[in-house]
Amino acid sequence: MSTPVQTSPASTMISFARGAPSTDIVDVEGLKQAAVAAFDSDPAGMTGYGTAVGYVPLRRWIAEKHGVPVEHVLVTNGSMQADAFLFDELATPGAAVITERPTYDRTLLGLRNRGADVHLVTLEEDGIAVEEVAGLLEGGLRPTLAHVIPNFQNPAGYTLSLAKRERLLELARRHDLVLFEDDPYVDIRFSGEPLPRMLELDGGAASEHVVYASSFSKTVCPGIRVGYLVGPPALIRKIQVRATNTYIAPNMVAQGTVYAYLQGDRFPAALERVKQALAERVGLLDDALRAHLPQASFRRPEGGYFLWVSLPEGEGHDVARITAEAAARGVAIVPGTDFLLEGGENSFRLAYSAVQPGDVDEGVRRLAEAVEAARP
């Protein structure tokens, strides 16, 4: 899909900071129609409290999508709330938890705020370093949870290989470990071949070692705030009690609108439009980085919103200074230090989902100036 090139003036902020789509690639008209359809078809469901497990037809749709009984599914206000409920259950004070290094900053914040004993494991270009995980487990660590973002990881954009998915499951079975497959980006793949979910590899409905989370924020729109968990029924029942005590029921209007939209005929084309737009933007970002920051290293993702950039080590880069210099030039980035407990001073995350195509090259050009200005 070709987009007319329109460049922002120098005074305009170009943001590579926010992991959200620009409004022009959201099907606003389709969502308006879906909301009306939801109220027309189920006014009682839209206006009532509903149940803590979520809007029942959407819960059933999710269960069918993943090939599990509905008792395995709980629909929440965004996948971050799904994460929070699971962390409340398993990441209790002092509990050992494994996650990737780097990982989503809100994941780190949620785990640390609960007093969990967080063990960060190296993230490689084909996913978490599974033999490093094996070493921790064989060394006596007994984590209650291992958190993994398998597809187009936030912040790095990397994807967990099939071999590593299978190895993680092997380790989970051997050491009775819960794998938290946090997967909000899976359906926005724009190149390469899709890989099976670990939930599927572990038997789907029979899975005992995988809890799966996903979201409609990336495929429908962020403002809809609808996510979900899939897991063993006993665990889902415990989390359902937490959900009841938190809000009685999640947002029925949002969930009913999502369900109506998924049932309509606009969703497939809208999702394809999003993927085409993201593919175009990441291609432009790849070209711009090679042109203006040739010293940087990065891996072009096959989907998702994010790309991780590392500058050469040993040159004294300070990402806090780079971020400030970039902001002074009208460019927003997120420093790598936000996604780590320590380190990351030579790295930053670029989100390309909200940047207009005509602004990508100019944004990276300004960023390159900021990198140069921030040198010691």
Rank of each mutant, 00 (worst) to 15 (best):
M1L: 06
M1F: 09
P4S: 09
P4Y: 00
P4M: 07
Q6T: 15
S15I: 06
R18Y: 09
G19K: 03
I25E: 10
V28M: 01
E29R: 13
L31C: 10
Q33A: 15
Q33W: 03
A34P: 09
A44R: 13
G48D: 13
V53Y: 11
R60A: 15
W61P: 03
W61N: 07
I62N: 06
I62S: 05
G67S: 07
V70H: 01
E71N: 13
E71Q: 13
L74F: 05
N77W: 01
N77K: 07
G78C: 10
F87C: 05
L90S: 01
A91V: 03
A91R: 03
A95Q: 02
A95M: 03
V97D: 06
I98A: 08
L108S: 02
R114N: 06
L120N: 08
V121C: 07
V121W: 08
T122D: 15
L123G: 05
I128L: 12
A129H: 14
A129C: 09
V130L: 04
V130A: 06
V133M: 04
A134K: 12
L136H: 15
L137V: 05
T144L: 01
T144M: 01
H147Q: 04
H147R: 02
V148Y: 02
I149C: 05
Q153S: 15
A156Q: 11
L162K: 02
L162E: 14
R165K: 15
L171T: 08
R173I: 00
R173Y: 00
R174C: 00
H175N: 06
L179N: 00
P184E: 02
Y185C: 01
V186Y: 13
D187P: 00
S191G: 12
G192T: 02
E193H: 09
P194L: 01
R197N: 08
M198L: 11
E200A: 13
D202E: 04
Y212R: 08
A213Y: 03
F216W: 14
Y228G: 10
Y228V: 06
V230Q: 04
P233C: 01
I236Q: 03
I239K: 03
Q240G: 15
T244N: 07
I248P: 03
M252E: 11
T257N: 04
Y261E: 06
L262R: 10
Q263R: 15
G264C: 06
D265A: 15
A270E: 10
V274C: 09
K275N: 14
A279I: 01
R281N: 15
V282H: 11
D286C: 07
L289W: 08
A296H: 12
P301Q: 11
W308H: 12
P312W: 11
E315K: 13
A320G: 13
A328Q: 14
I333M: 05
I333P: 05
P335L: 02
D338R: 14
F339L: 03
L341D: 13
E342Y: 10
N346M: 00
R349V: 14
L350P: 10
A351H: 07
V355Y: 07
V355F: 08
G358C: 05
D359L: 03
D361Y: 08
V364I: 15
A368I: 05
V371Q: 11
A373K: 11
P376M: 11
